[in-house]
């Protein structure tokens, strides 16, 4: 195959990307697949054990617990995020004085970063001196100071609350862009027709922002599914494994217990769960072009 000068140039420009994908995307992928069948602790040589990692996974109650916790968190966080992000966007569709200041504050909350926001929430949710209890509970006469991060039944709801505070504004920003792109005439027609809020939502807003909204739903779900930052900083999986999401479980197995083969096998399982979603998104993206 003889390449024209222009083709060669293109190839040279794309070369760094090719190197990246080979070395840091395809290779780790294959390596994880390979290690999934090995017993490997970094010290001794990897030893082939067939499907033992996978069968160990299925029979391991901690793994099943982690999957359950992960699904709890994924739906518990992403459903309210998607609903409230849309409501946020609809609020910000309107013009009002000071909108700009509020928008800046919301962006601060969601973009401030993992460590600052989780460190703040860790103190805010403290049983004795946390302001969250003070503002929303016992100042209003509710009896107890809730021990958010120490109680196995409350820890996950607390983590969901933390995720809502960053997730809702974050995805709302995407939706604000889409909602403000809807032509004014559409609303005027709806007004003449006497459509109520839900009819406007159903027939004007949702069809217009459909693609962005689907993107938001899927991104929010995927990112919740593999989320571990706040869990690592705030609860470390506890109390009683009630917040040990799957990516944290993988992380613990790999880097605390040196079970790299086992961790790789779990990585592969997560990828197998995510890949149909990813390809579904890409196919949709292709259709909407």
């Amino acid at each position: 195959m003889k390449l024209k000068w222009k083709q060669t140039t293109g190839l040279i420009f794309a070369l760094p990307a090719v190197v990246y994908f080979l070395l840091f995307f395809i290779f780790p992928f294959c390596y994880a697949l390979f290690l999934g069948f090995q017993d490997y602790d970094l010290l001794s040589k990897p030893e082939f054990i067939g499907l033992a990692n996978y069968s160990k996974m299925i029979s391991n109650p901690s793994f099943r617990n982690s999957m359950g916790v992960t699904f709890y968190y994924t739906f518990g966080a992403s459903i309210p995020i998607c609903i409230f992000a849309l409501l946020f966007a609809l609020l910000f569709k309107n013009n009002f004085r000071g909108k700009y200041i509020y928008l800046t504050i919301f962006m601060m909350t969601c973009l401030m970063g993992l460590i600052p926001s989780t460190m703040a929430w860790k103190v805010l949710l403290h049983q004795d001196y946390g302001l969250f209890n003070k503002i929303f509970f016992y100042s209003w006469g509710f009896a107890d100071k809730l021990n958010w991060l120490g109680n196995p039944n409350l820890a996950m709801p607390a983590m969901i609350i933390v995720s809502l505070s960053t997730g809702i504004p974050y995805y709302a920003i995407y939706l604000i862009g889409a909602v403000s792109g809807i032509p004014k005439e559409h609303y005027e027609v709806a007004k003449i027709e006497g459509a109520n809020f839900f009819q406007r939502l159903r027939f004007i807003i949702l069809p217009a922002i459909k693609n962005v909204y689907i993107f938001v739903i899927i991104t929010a779900t995927i990112s919740a599914f593999q989320y571990m930052g706040p869990f690592y900083v705030m609860t470390r999986g506890g109390p009683l494994d009630s917040t040990r999401v799957i990516s944290l479980f993988i992380f613990n197995n790999a880097f605390d217990f040196q079970r790299f083969g086992y961790a790789s096998a779990m990585t592969i399982v997560i990828l197998i769960i995510l890949i149909p979603i990813v390809f579904g998104v890409l196919r949709r993206g292709g259709e909407s072009d």
């Binding site: 840091f24 995307f25 290779f27 390596y31 290690l35 593999q226 992380f251 790299f260 790789s264 990585t267």
Partner: peptide, 10 residues
Amino acid sequence: VILIVPLFME
């Protein structure tokens, strides 16, 4: 985050 284990070993 998903590829962090094999990437680390690489």
